[in-house]
């Protein structure tokens, strides 16, 4: 084999991303076809595949929970991070950073539980909890990312006559983007997990078959839900990793 013909070998991680995505979609659509397999694995259960809701619907519900909360967290979080790194908001930076740091020590499951008495059961409290919790890594990384911009770079940008807006769009955000995306990645991954637990407060998600299986002592349901949600998290993580790589600028 001549080396010269190999241009850009597709990295292992990209292969993994494609393979796991295909697996995720296939399992979501055709889980019911695996009934004989689950029946063989768990001969004692009468209904080896979860059928109260289609897995497609459950996955979509799960994604909706994560998407809605993440969209809010990212817009509020990046906005807050920007505010406290501007001249007018600098005073709030230590306080906001502390809140983000302390808030992240709160267990996500406990936050979910705390929101219930304030917002009730179902979709809304889950989204509130996911949003609140997802906000913290985004804020923290936005501040950290913007603080990595070297002062000399900012001075150079001012020196060549860029406006504040141009400096933000063309210099600060591109440099900070990798760290900000890392924050969004952490936030989304945590939220995928917490949305699963959302099933215990009545939000339908991929956690629903897991909880149903644990309550009804049907391990097949547990495995079906866990498999899909695990795949969903890993595929999302790999996607974010690709996205981060686009902003590394050769570093």
């Amino acid at each position: 084999m001549r080396v010269a013909t190999v241009k850009h070998p597709i990295p292992f991680r990209d292969w993994l991303l494609v393979a796991l995505s295909v697996l995720l979609v296939t399992l979501t659509l055709f889980m019911a076809r695996l009934e004989p397999l689950f029946q063989a694995l768990f001969p004692d259960v009468s209904n080896p595949v979860y059928r109260r809701e289609s897995f497609l619907q459950l996955t979509l519900d799960h994604l909706l929970l994560v998407l809605v909360s993440s969209l809010i967290s990212v817009s509020v979080g990046v906005g807050a991070g920007l505010f406290v790194t501007r001249r007018g908001g600098r005073e709030f930076e230590p306080m906001v950073s502390s809140m983000a740091a302390i808030g992240q020590t709160f267990p996500p499951a406990a936050v979910l539980a705390i929101v219930v008495p304030l917002a009730g059961f179902g979709f809304v409290p889950t989204v509130v909890a996911l949003t609140l919790y997802g906000l913290l890594p985004v804020i923290q990384n936005t501040i950290a990312g913007l603080n990595t911009v070297p002062p000399a770079t900012l001075e150079a940008a001012r020196g060549i006559g860029m406006t504040q807006g141009q400096i933000l769009r063309r210099v600060e955000l591109p440099i900070a983007m990798r760290v900000i995306i890392a924050g969004v990645r952490v936030s989304v991954i945590i939220n995928i997990g917490t949305a699963t637990i959302g099933a215990t407060v009545g939000a339908q998600s991929l956690g629903t078959p897991i909880i149903a299986g644990l309550v009804g002592n049907n391990i097949a349901y547990v495995i079906q839900g866990a498999l899909l949600v695990g795949l969903l998290a890993i595929v999302s993580d790999l996607l974010f990793e690709r996205l981060e790589r686009r902003f590394t600028f050769g570093a």
Partner: peptide
């Protein structure tokens, strides 16, 4: 290690239930 860290806690707990039982 990152692979494990990414899997939601409840899923990892649940996936361990079957082999351990």
């Amino acid at each position: 290690l990152n692979f494990f860290q990414t899997i939601p806690s409840i899923a990892l707990f649940a996936l361990l239930v079957a082999p351990l039982s």
